[in-house]
C-alpha cells in the first residue's frame, strides 16, 4: 500500500455525524470486481442530483475545493456496512486522511490497509479546523502525530503498529508470512472434535 508520512493539503469539511458507508459509497457500486474507479461515485447521493447532474451546493463539488486531500467530518464516520469499497472511493477520489470525532472499528481497520489515515480529534479541535478556507493548507505529520492549521497544533493518538505500517507502506500478508512456523504450530494443537 502507499506509505503515509506527512501530508500538506487542502481540506474539505463535511461536518455531519454518523456518515455511514452506504452514504460514502452506495451499494449499487459494490458490483465492481476491481479495487479502482470508485472515486467518481464517492458520496454519490449527495454529489449528484436525481437527473445525474452535479449538486453544486455540495462541498465536494465546489470549484475551490477541487484537489482537497483531507476530509474533516463529524462523529461515528464509516459506520454500517463493512464495505472496503468506501475506503477505496475516498482514496481514489484523492483523500489521504480523514479527521473525525470517531470511526467505526471496521472502517478504521479498512483505512489502515489502504493508506488512508483516520485521525480522531475532539470536537474542540475540529471546531477550529472547520473554519479552514479553501485556499488554506492543513499539515499532518504522522511521525510527530500532529495536525497543524495556522497557529494551532493538535496531537492525535494512533496504535504504534498501525503507525509503523502507514509510514512503511507495509503489505500485511508478507508480514504475517514471517510467522508461518507459529501458525503451523498453532494449527497442530487446535481442538478437533471431528
Amino acid at each position: 500500500m502507499e506509505a503515509f508520512v506527512r501530508e500538506t493539503g487542502r481540506a474539505v469539511v463535511i461536518p455531519n455525524d454518523n456518515i455511514n458507508t452506504d452514504i460514502i459509497l452506495p451499494k449499487q457500486f459494490l458490483k465492481n470486481i476491481l479495487k479502482t474507479g470508485f472515486g467518481k461515485d464517492l458520496f454519490f447521493d449527495w454529489r449528484y442530483n436525481a437527473d445525474g447532474s452535479l449538486n453544486e451546493a455540495f462541498e465536494l463539488n465546489k470549484p475551490a475545493h477541487q484537489g482537497a486531500s483531507i476530509l474533516i467530518t463529524g462523529n461515528d464516520f464509516g459506520s454500517g456496512s463493512s464495505r472496503e469499497h468506501a475506503v477505496w472511493a475516498l482514496t481514489d477520489y484523492g483523500f489521504r486522511a480523514v479527521i473525525g470525532g470517531g470511526f467505526s472499528d471496521i472502517f478504521y481497520m479498512n483505512s489502515t490497509k489502504n493508506g488512508l489515515l483516520p485521525i480522531v480529534l475532539p470536537e474542540e479541535n475540529r471546531k477550529i479546523l472547520r473554519d479552514v478556507q479553501a485556499d488554506e493548507n492543513i499539515q499532518i505529520d504522522l511521525p510527530e502525530q500532529t495536525v497543524t492549521y495556522k497557529n494551532y497544533t493538535f496531537h492525535f493518538d494512533i496504535n504504534s503498529q498501525w503507525k509503523e505500517k502507514f509510514i512503511n507502506g507495509e503489505d500485511d500478508i508478507d508480514n504475517t508470512m514471517k510467522y508461518e512456523k507459529l501458525i503451523a504450530a498453532f494449527e497442530k494443537q487446535r481442538p478437533n472434535f471431528g
Binding site: 463493512s82 472496503e84 475506503v87 471496521i106 481497520m109 479498512n110 490497509k113 500478508i173 504475517t176 508470512m177
Partner: peptide, 23 residues
C-alpha cells in the same frame, strides 16, 4: 464473530489469521 474488510478477506484466505487489537 465479526465483519472484516476486503483486504482482511484476502489476508484470511492466504494465512487463516487476522491482526486485531483486542477490543
Amino acid at each position: 464473530a465479526f465483519g472484516i474488510g476486503t483486504s482482511e478477506v484476502e489476508h484470511v484466505l492466504a494465512t487463516q489469521t487476522i491482526w486485531q487489537v483486542k477490543p
